[in-house]
Design a protein around this nucleic acid. Structure first.
Length: 826
RNA sequence: GCCGAAGUGGCGGAAUGGCAGACGCGGUGGACUCAAAAUCCACUGUCCGCAAGGGCGUGAGGGUUCGACUCCCUCCUUCGGCACCA
């Protein structure tokens, strides 16, 4: 080996130095978050992981390295940084593992957390580990339940009967994605849509604020996704009287201007009036249709959406303006859960109504025309704005005005009113699972004299009278079940823990809620618990809130763009309303890291055999190489494929840095070119980190290192600066080199180097010379040189002169330090 | 279908109105070596040319500008999200 180092210690050996500095940081509490008066603060938050059995994925270190670099850089700039980590540890996989192995989910969860913690520590993230939290621990669950109670007391947590995909064979409720053709995806068991008692949170009451407050946060397109998800639409509700029936049918429409074109009314199969208004002659057909529709999941309904099925109810509605008799149909293209569950069908101006009307031979009337002229018949629905026609006294009005006039007319005659609908539904908040937070709710139990519901004596649980557990009795811990399996009891596995469910107080029996909260609950407020994670009096102190909130930077995957980020914002707003938090929005700046694909450009997955395991990468290349490589791959937000040859290149770079730093000499002085490059790099790396352009920061460090390695000897001052600039990205390497270059640990506590503006600005610049916009040469000149000087220099060049015949110059464009463009006559 | 993002060498990417391709990977040639690996040095968009140099070139087409990867319009493709929301 030609480059054999003098001894083993002079070789870059991440396997040795990385654990060494991780231990050092732990022992010295290097990254403990402390708030010092008069210093700026930065709360840098990662989306905390679900500690799965598979361990860390290479996608995790991507976002985590990005935030770590920001945090480490800020600390060196004198900023107080809160950079915590924890575990979103409730959830299905641990429960399923428990069912398979007969162990308790907490056991597997604990093991997984230990593995995740080991892996994160192995990557050298500068978390304040003293603030670690685990959503399944009772001192965390206690406050999750406490917040639920605040939501409950605000009247925002209510029970209702909601149709869900219930599979009695599997003993559980299934997600829409898990139901295919009315059968369970796994096992092919029948699935029914049955209404079950569920808790829901009234997030729709916050819909407008959830849209509006997005204005003040620095988020990517996620804002638009949320706005679309909430799907606010303005329109009106209109009453249609039903023939032979006392109450009326209410429909929601965004096109009241097309009211004169309504030729029939459609109600959803779930509509409460379906059964009652159906004519005797149609009842059987209607029942069969409703039955068939309920066997289909939402997803399944959509899949066959081209075919618009439906049956007539035999009932008729009265058109509110013309009094005409129009038929009422049942069809599953109308959703029971949106608007009023009923629509006025205007086939002339709605695609779905048009298709349905054609199929079922219902009349199609044109009431909006592009130019006000009448058409004999419509070959396709006209859905754009236009001029109202065939609308009686309203003829000739343009669509927007027509809408206002119709709503106004309906309101004055008590036939309808303006109204807003949202695609967003209230949040079904209960799960029939074991491994989740119990609800801090119980219910009175009616039981015959001396009966004991625990022994199966007849009893009735009064679900209509929920009682909040007293705050002093929190947390309500999970009972120690041995069998977590779901059963055909829709109350969930907790219902089997009879001694836990039922209790007596003042001689009366009560039953606990046996549903548990969904996995989202814990992640809805964890950023607040990090402020003050060991507080046993309150979720967090006011002081800690003022110290650190809001979250300045929040980084995580875009798969959470709507659900988690919407739920957390909703809870935050409820807490805002009760005065617990002081900002409207919790997360100021949001960034989503892009997915890392396998080497074959496909999504990493076990089945594709292209999964990269961080443990293997660290063993082979080191944590610093992994960190630097993931940052160097490309822009953080972008999807990028993994390349082993790429991380090899980064590893080579780190080895060159190591070697050149150790060969540096304290007496060596940097020449001016070196000094200028050092200062430019200080500026570039600092600016890039702040802009989160980590790929170009690494590139700038490579350029500096390439330059320094051409020097003989390498000036130690320059090497030390290189080490400081590298330290947020490759902290272990930097600590080791800092110490070896005579610095006092920790490099993480050193001030970030400053640059001299005069050295960053080149005095002599090289600019391109264009003739008619084409580059014909380059000249070096003072950055403030005059146009005449530049032109003279340019014309000294043979190639430039060749393109500029005498007397042909028409115009000169000169931008100092940028470009000289000579325009000549052709 | 609707909403959003992105299209630049063989590959990851850089440049956000001023010298296109920084930096890295890969490739080619060379040094070192008995040899290989590792390392180091040089070259590496494409076409024409011995060279000097020139033509072309940032998905396609148009426009604005002295000048466009960058701004505007139309279209194509890819990716992400939503999807009977009346």
């Amino acid at each position: 080996m030609s480059t054999t180092p003098k001894n083993q210690e002079d070789r870059y050996s991440p396997a040795f130095i990385e654990p060494k500095w991780q231990t050092y940081w732990d022992e010295h509490h290097t990254f403990r978050s402390v708030r010092r008066p008069g210093h700026p603060k930065l709360y840098v938050l990662d989306m905390f992981p679900y500690p799965s059995g598979a361990g860390l994925h290479v996608g995790h270190p991507e976002g985590y390295t990005a935030t770590d670099i920001v945090a480490r850089h800020a600390r060196m700039k004198g900023v107080d940084v809160l950079h915590p980590m924890g575990w979103d540890a409730f959830g299905l996989p641990a429960e399923q593992y428990a069912i398979q192995t007969g162990t308790h989910p907490s056991q597997k969860t604990k093991e997984n957390i230990e593995n995740f913690r080991r892996q994160l520590k192995m990557l050298g993230f500068s978390y304040d580990w003293e603030r670690e939290i685990d959503t399944t621990q009772s001192d965390y669950v206690r406050w999750t339940q406490w917040i639920f109670l605040q939501i409950f007391h605000q009247g925002l947590a209510v029970q209702s009967e909601i149709p869900v995909n219930w599979c009695s064979e599997l003993g559980t409720v299934l997600a829409n994605e898990e139901v295919i053709d009315g059968k369970s995806e796994r096992g092919g068991h029948p699935v029914q849509r049955i209404p079950l008692r569920q808790w829901s949170l009234k997030i729709t009451e916050y819909a407008d604020r959830l849209v509006h407050d997005l204005e003040c946060v620095d988020w990517p397109d996620t804002k638009l996704k949320q706005i679309n998800w909430i799907g606010r639409s303005e329109g009106c509700e209109i009453e249609f009287a039903v023939d032979q029936y006392p109450s009326s049918l209410r429909v929601f429409t965004t096109r009241p201007d097309t009211l004169f074109g309504a030729t029939y009314v459609v109600i959803a199969p779930e509509h409460p009036l379906v059964e009652t208004i159906s004519a005797a002659s149609c009842k059987d057909a209607v029942r069969a249709y409703v039955q068939a529709a309920s066997a289909r999941s939402d997803l399944d309904r959509v899949a066959t959406s081209k075919d618009k099925t439906g049956v007539a109810t035999g009932a008729f509605a009265r058109h509110p303006l013309t009094g005409e008799k129009i038929p009422i149909w049942v069809a599953d293209y109308v959703l029971g859960s949106y608007g009023t569950g009923a629509v006025m069908a205007v086939p002339g101006h709605d695609e779905r109504d048009f298709v349905f009307a054609q199929k079922h031979d219902l009349p199609i009337i044109e009431v909006v025309s592009p130019d006000g002229s009448l058409s004999e018949s419509l070959l396709s629905p006209f859905i754009e704005d236009g001029i109202s026609v065939r609308s009686g006294a309203f003829d000739g009005l343009p669509t927007p005005e027509m809408k206002r006039r119709i709503i106004d007319h309906l309101e004055r005659h008590h036939l309808g009113k303006a109204s807003v609908s949202y695609k967003l539904r209230d949040w079904v908040f209960s799960r029939q699972r074991y491994w989740g937070e119990p609800f801090p709710i119980y219910f009175p139990v009616e039981v015959a004299n001396d009966g004991d519901p625990r022994k199966g004596d007849p009893h009735t649980i009064r679900y209509d009278q929920p009682i909040a557990v007293d705050e002093s009795e929190l947390p309500v811990n999970l009972p120690d079940l041995h069998d977590f399996r779901p059963s055909n009891d829709p109350r969930g596995p907790l219902a089997r823990a009879l001694d836990w469910v039922f209790f007596q107080r003042d001689g009366k029996w009560f039953a606990r809620e046996t549903n548990t909260m969904p996995q989202w609950a814990g992640s809805c407020w964890y950023y607040l618990r990090f402020l003050d994670p060991r507080n046993d009096k309150r979720p967090f102190s006011e002081q800690s809130y003022d110290d650190w909130m809001p979250v300045d930077l929040y980084v995580g995957g875009s798969e959470h763009a709507v659900l988690h980020l919407l739920y957390a914002r909703f809870w935050h707003k409820v807490l805002f309303d009760i005065g617990l938090v002081k900002h409207r929005e919790p997360f100021h700046k949001l960034v989503h890291q892009g997915m890392i694909l396998g080497e074959n450009n496909e999504k990493m997955s076990k089945s594709r055999g292209n999964v990269i395991n961080p443990d293997d990468v660290v063993r082979e290349f080191g944590a610093d190489a992994l960190r630097a490589y993931e940052m160097f791959m490309g822009p953080l937000e972008q999807v990028k494929p993994w390349k082993t040859s790429g991380i090899q290149g980064v590893r080579r770079f780190l080895e060159r840095v190591y070697k050149l730093c150790l060969s540096s000499e304290a007496e060596a002085k940097a020449d001016e070119a070196t000094l200028r490059l050092v200062h430019k790099t200080i500026k570039k790396v600092g600016d890039d980190i702040e802009a989160m352009h980590f790929n170009t920061a690494v590139s700038a460090l490579m350029i500096l290192s390439n330059h320094l390695s051409t020097l003989q000897p390498v000036p130690m001052d320059a090497a030390r600066t290189l080490v400081l600039l590298l330290s947020p990205i490759t902290p272990h390497l930097a600590e080791e080199l800092w110490q070896r270059l005579g610095g006092t640990p920790s490099v993480s506590l050193q001030p970030w180097p400053t640059y001299d503006e005069a050295l960053v600005r080149e005095d002599v610049v090289e600019i391109g010379v264009q003739v008619n916009g084409k580059v014909r040469g380059r000249i070096a000149l003072a950055r403030d040189a005059s146009e005449d000087e530049a032109l003279a220099l340019a014309l000294e060049q043979e190639n430039v002169r060749a393109h500029v015949p005498d007397g042909s110059v028409r115009k000169i464009i000169y931008r100092p330090a940028q470009i000289l463009n000579i325009i000549v006559a052709k």
